[in-house]
Amino acid sequence: MLSEQSVPVVRATLPVVGAAIGDITELFYRKLFEAHPELLRDLFNRGNQANGEQQRALAGSIAAFAGMLLERPDARPDALLARIAHKHASLGITSGQYKIVHHHLFGAIAEVLGDAVTPEVAAAWDEVYWLMANALMAIEAHLYQEAGAAEGDVWQRMEITERREETPDAVSFLLRRTDGRPVAAYRPGQYVSVQVELPDGARQIRQYSLSGAPGRPEWRITVKHVHGSGQPDGEVSSWLHAHARPGDVVTVSAPFGDLVLPEGDGPLLLASAGIGVTPMLAMLDHLASTGAARPVTVVHADRTPAHHAHRNEQLALVRALPDARLHLWYEEPGDQAPEASTGLADVGTLELPSGLTAYLCGPLPFMRAVRGDLLRRGVPAEAIHYEVFGPDLWLGRP
Rank of each mutant, 00 (worst) to 15 (best):
S3N: 08
E4I: 03
V10W: 12
V10A: 03
R11D: 02
T13N: 13
L14E: 13
G18H: 09
G18E: 11
A19Q: 14
A20W: 11
I21G: 06
G22H: 14
G22Q: 14
I24R: 14
K31S: 09
L32I: 13
P37H: 12
E38I: 08
L39I: 07
L39D: 00
D42P: 03
L43D: 00
F44D: 02
G47Y: 01
N48R: 13
Q49T: 12
A57Q: 08
L70R: 10
D78P: 01
L81N: 09
H86F: 06
H88D: 03
S90R: 00
S90I: 00
H104I: 02
G107P: 01
A110N: 08
G114M: 13
P119F: 10
E120M: 11
A122G: 06
A123W: 09
A124I: 07
L131F: 02
A133I: 08
Q145G: 11
E146H: 03
E146D: 07
G148F: 15
G148V: 13
A149C: 15
A149E: 08
D153H: 13
W155C: 12
W155P: 07
Q156M: 15
M158R: 06
T161F: 06
R163V: 06
L174E: 15
R176K: 11
R177Q: 15
T178K: 09
T178L: 14
P182M: 13
A184H: 15
V196N: 07
V196P: 09
L198T: 06
R203E: 09
I205Q: 00
Q207F: 04
S209G: 05
S209E: 02
R216G: 13
P217I: 09
P217S: 15
E218M: 10
R220D: 01
H225C: 04
G228L: 05
D233F: 04
G234Y: 05
V236D: 03
S238F: 02
W239A: 12
A244R: 02
P246G: 10
P246W: 08
T251Y: 14
V252K: 03
F256C: 02
P262A: 05
E263F: 00
G264F: 07
L270P: 01
G274L: 09
V277H: 11
M283I: 04
D285I: 02
S289H: 13
G291R: 04
R294I: 03
T297S: 13
T297I: 10
A301L: 07
H308F: 10
Q314L: 15
L315I: 12
A316W: 14
V318T: 13
A320T: 12
L321W: 13
P322C: 14
A324D: 11
R325V: 15
G334T: 07
A337C: 09
V347D: 00
T349H: 13
E351P: 11
Y359N: 01
G362E: 04
L364K: 06
M367W: 02
L375D: 06
L375C: 04
R376Y: 05
R377H: 06
R377M: 06
P380Y: 04
A381N: 08
E382P: 03
E387Q: 11
V388T: 05
D392E: 03
G396S: 12
R397V: 12
